[in-house]
Design a protein around this nucleic acid. Structure first.
Lengths: 120, 120, 120, 120
DNA sequence: GTGGTCTAGACCACA
DNA sequence: GTGGTCTAGACCACA
């Protein structure tokens, strides 16, 4: 259920984080559901345990999950990190747009891009 | 005339490249004008010489500048890098939007953001 | 009658220990009363038998309970664990305060907190 | 300037984090100051590079520092994490006190403890 | 030199 | 079995 792009410059732990968040957002995992164990994911994705751990460490720090020694990792009661994540994403876009504006990207360029990306 | 943001994730050599291009685009430097020397920039910006060199190497490879042993670095006759710069910027925005989309950023969020950023 | 907080960093066996002691302190269980069986608790709390066992092992080691092969686990004649429990609690608070002090928590912050928590 | 307690149950990376924060709070390091390099700290404290890295990763995630590849790690412009840290500390104390209250810790116990810990 | 990512593996606490 | 900490070391991008 998690797909990694080894070509991407986005670090693997980051890809894992984002996909776990998406699985939660789409309801595949509900609050207090137990997520697959670190070792299971490590085996399934063929990724080192430490890399998976890092992904979950950050998810926990961001309030998306909580872990319980010996029991596993669970979806937080209220993974409100979603809101924060969205805000961060918007901030990132804002920065990219600001940078683009200085390089000649026009409003209609962006309009076109958005229409493309959000078309049905 | 060049401002670096050390907090940004954009590498410094990249920031230098972009700002030189912008200085050319805005007419501060015209074709065949001599640009500040690597050492002068290094001293002024307090940046490692290697970093400046790298910026100019890439600018030269992209046809924006040309260098002349012992004379200095000059703006190319036809610094057509503009288009590529803009394309890169659009690609960056596209990536940020794609990432944001997965995190719940809606079309209207973006619409609002664009309107804000491009308002008179 | 025992409530576990899976989100807490306090180990589950520890939570069980403390709650059993509290049930004794509050008189729910009197000296020589038989406590619920390990299996019953395990089923009721949906907790691994080993975890429950560990809690009772420690309670027994601390003189709070005693067990009788085949009969069950009983409240000790004089479950003097109370004092130690309180001491531990104070030690925990002390550590939290020490840590907080270094992070800017002032005496008046604490004064306020205590007043709040101990108000009628 | 950083002292580690290897006996403590507090993880080393956590101790490092807290001490860095204290060095910032006490003004030893000011905003935008460069902190000692990861490798230097690793050598000085005789702690593995990865452990130091983890400390700084978390500090960066919390907005206390920012890092710049090839240049180093710097104190954030506005390390407002202090406030958050303090809030977290108070929350921790609150929890410890709540737990203690149930175990017989009285208001005067706490009063005594605070007076002791904050005496001149 | 300086930070960033990833792998490999040891050892521990808890369930 | 399951997560948490730590060490050791490789390899990369950037300065």
């Amino acid at each position: 259920m998690i797909f990694l792009d080894y070509q991407s410059r986005v670090p693997i732990y980051q890809q894992i984080k984002e996909q776990v968040i998406m699985l939660i957002n789409t309801g595949v995992y509900a609050p207090n559901d137990r997520l697959p164990s670190i070792r299971a994911l490590s085996a399934e994705l063929n990724i080192n345990v430490n890399t998976i751990k890092r992904a979950f460490q950050e998810l926990e720090a961001e309030g998306v999950t909580y872990s319980s020694q010996g029991r596993g990792i669970f979806v937080a009661e209220n993974p409100l990190a979603n809101e924060k994540l969205k805000e961060n994403a918007i901030a990132d876009i804002k920065q990219a747009v600001a940078s683009g504006k200085a390089k000649g990207v026009t409003k209609s360029d962006l309009q076109k891009l958005i229409d493309e990306m959000y078309e049905v």
